[in-house]
């Protein structure tokens, strides 16, 4: 087991190259003066400048960030509740049903989720008059619906690994159930809550298909803008945007890594 085999190592290297080369090239070409990917005509930041003056794109990005943040916050609450239910409430009636409802959104094709939610919103609007028009709220609801399933997976595995006797000890020392949850359980699953939040935030920021279905006139998210510009072919502005996203993620990962090491 200690000896590394060459075929295995080369597949590993190839795999990582496969995952990273496209992104690295994207970053590289975001600094290219020329619009063409085949020609390197010199270092330039002009695409970043254009990006920052692209009103439509910035508006969409702001909308997406707001949706993503609200989505992540609600999804963390609902996903944590669901994880509590599955880990702490044993064999309740309807457990299998809840498990099913929490697994299905993880694999369900986006087109189906998007279409079905749109039909629900339309029907609800016709019968109860809500939601009044589609946009921010309908996209957020749609995103929460699949994000909460991801959060539940993350929080559930953390909760399941947690020693139950910690909660019992707290109760034995006189803490009521709510105090136990706030002072013992929550601090101990906090890392999972944070990664669940970030995951839900990213999933929302990334979604094109579902948002396209349930959005209404006037509500255009960032992926929708990217999609319409990408359909036209390679766009250096999108390269610049991709680079910013990668940089942001890298910074977040480094911070997370450092804070974990300090512990």
């Amino acid at each position: 087991m200690k000896r590394r085999s060459w075929p295995l190592l080369s597949i590993l290297v190839f795999g990582y190259a496969f995952l990273y080369v496209p992104i690295l090239l994207l970053i590289l070409y975001s600094f290219n003066e020329s619009r063409l990917v085949t020609v390197w005509s010199g270092f330039s930041l002009k695409w970043y400048g254009e990006l920052l003056h692209n009103r439509q794109l910035l508006d969409a990005a702001w909308l997406s960030v707001r949706i993503a943040a609200l989505n992540a916050s609600v999804a963390v609450v609902l996903g944590t509740l669901a994880a509590n239910a599955l880990v702490r409430h044993g064999r309740f009636r309807g457990r299998t049903g809840l498990e099913l409802l929490l697994t299905a959104p993880l694999v369900m094709p986006d087109v189906i989720i998007g279409l079905s939610l749109l039909l629900l919103f339309v029907t609800l609007q016709q019968t109860v008059g809500w939601p009044d028009g589609r946009g921010f709220s309908t996209i957020t609801i749609a995103h929460i619906t699949f994000s909460l399933a991801y959060v539940a997976v993350v929080v559930r595995s953390r909760l399941a690994r947690m020693d139950v006797s910690l909660e019992e000890a707290a109760m034995d020392l006189g803490a009521r159930p709510l105090t136990v949850y706030l002072r013992i359980t929550l601090p101990l699953i906090a890392p999972a809550l944070l990664s669940g939040w970030l995951l839900a935030f990213t999933l929302s920021l990334d979604d094109l298909v579902i948002a396209s279905f349930v959005s209404g006139p006037g509500a255009t998210t960032l992926p929708m803008v990217i999609y319409s510009s990408v359909r036209m072919g390679v766009s250096p502005q999108i390269n610049a945007l991709a680079t910013l996203v990668v940089a942001l993620v890298a910074v977040a990962v480094v911070i997370a890594g450092l804070s974990m090491r300090r512990r």
């Binding site: 020693d163 006797s165 910690l166 019992e168 000890a169 707290a170 109760m171 034995d172 020392l173 006189g174 803490a175 009521r176 013992i184 601090p187 101990l188």
Partner: peptide, 20 residues
């Protein structure tokens, strides 16, 4: 009487010390 209101305390086998 729930555990938090009993005049009893327990030392757990795993000690159950709060890690945080």
């Amino acid at each position: 009487v729930p555990p938090y209101s009993r005049p009893v305390n327990m030392m757990f086998q795993s000690y159950a010390l709060f890690p945080h």
